[in-house]
Write a protein that binds this DNA or RNA. Structure first.
Lengths: 238, 238
DNA sequence: ACCGTTACGTGCGGAATCGTACCGAAGCGC
DNA sequence: GCGCTTCGGTACGATTCCGCACGTAACGGT
């Protein structure tokens, strides 16, 4: 693992790993390999043995639930504040969900064996991972409530903010179609919401690329779930 | 902890505790106190220090998310196949959600300190609890997808089946009003769904009491989420 | 026995979202 | 530069669910 544009010599870009005591972080460098992930590429497939754990650096990954009728709904979105699969920290070997790359970028990839070793031998490591699982659980619960109660436009805004935080730019590739699948709504529904957000001046859309123009406006259009989940993951780093 | 109508001397009625090796189970009897919980009674309050962990025996507890506007949505339902709060197993001290009693009954209550001791000293215990957290996470994710995609009547059926499994009777107290709050829909919406399920012969309703008449019919009316979550918790016991 | 409370069946107009479809514009490969 | 594909703006009827509200029936307390 090489240092990636960061103050600390051992910083890697993923906030969970970077929150480890310096000693532990230095120690695990050999176990973490920087891997580039292309958009739409699967990182874990439902029902298959998990070979590795991914700590995103500037990639954004998604965990999705697939329903019987083939519909998919995003149930977790993972950037450098977290890792996939959470279940690896819960002594699971088989991936219970599919996860894939939403925004191309790099991840720090750790073989599952090394991950499990650390879970048992390093209490600070285990503690950090479990706290992160707690945030993931909290966030999944929040999504359950959000999907039930909040309007499409609010959820669009929430999603854009969450993703922008994770890629750390205000401009990234995203089609209406893709966002519609993530939110579990119609593509036309996203188009209407995006159109409305654009008219209000919160965002700009241009053929598969969004730009966040006015963050405050976007936060006002979003439901509380954005802030609540953000806080949960921030708290998990302590 | 006294034995409760069960083959094993140390069986307690909660499936998680009962899945422990006999030695561990016998060992923890002194730490688990059988407590009766009344309907609507809180067992954990959001933001407060968790004093204990509850392993339901014949009570059913609910974990709910409260939104800014005061709406509440059930994000986890917990019976003898699980425990609350899951986060206690993730080294958390503060309850991130509110949980309360949905169907009155008994729980095995363990002081949080004893619980944490066991998490660190008994690998089988920790393993079991973490697997259970995994099921809770999976289930919360499933609810997120379910709330987004499945109709009110399907979710009603799902809820009735889940609760019936947990109380292990086909008849229990439940008002439309309460179920509406749990599902995050209108009371009238539940009334319509219940009316429809009753006409089909799946259930019978009588002033605050449901009776499951035809389980097969109810399962057919339910979404897949019932079976999927049930399987997840069953798998977590191994 | 009476009355207040609780539970729930029902109805109505409106909003949100759905499914589907069509079309034009922007980009990409050749 | 041309044609194909992708993307997204837009429309329309159907459906689901909403908020609200009213009435009736069952039950519980006094």
């Amino acid at each position: 693992m090489r240092a990636v544009s960061s103050p600390s010599e051992y910083s890697c870009g993923n906030r969970v790993l970077d929150a480890l005591p310096a000693l532990d972080l230095a120690d695990l460098q050999d176990d973490v390999q920087i891997v580039s992930v292309a958009a739409a590429q699967y990182t874990h497939a439902l029902g298959e043995v998990m070979e590795h754990v991914d700590f995103p650096i500037d990639a954004v990954l998604s965990v999705v639930a697939t329903l019987e009728n083939g519909d998919t709904v995003e149930v977790g979105t993972v950037g450098r504040e977290s890792f996939v699969e959470a279940d690896a920290a819960l002594d699971l070997l088989i991936a219970p969900r599919t996860s894939f790359c939403q925004v191309a970028g790099r991840v720090g990839r750790m073989p599952i064996g090394r991950f499990q070793d650390r879970m048992t031998t390093s209490p600070p490591f285990a503690r950090l991972m479990l706290h992160n699982v707690s945030a993931a659980l909290f966030c999944a619960q929040q999504f359950a409530a959000c999907n039930s109660k909040h309007a499409v436009i609010q959820r669009c805004a929430r999603w854009l903010l969450m993703t922008a935080d994770r890629v750390d730019t205000s401009r990234f590739a995203l089609t209406h179609d893709f966002l519609a699948i993530m939110l579990g709504v119609r593509r036309a529904g996203v188009s209407e919401a995006a159109e409305s957000l654009q008219r209000s001046g919160a965002i700009e859309y241009h053929r598969g690329t969004v730009t966040l123009v006015d963050r405050a406006l976007l936060e006002a259009a979003s439901c509380e779930c954005y802030g609540v989940c953000r806080t949960a993951f921030a708290a998990a780093l302590r």
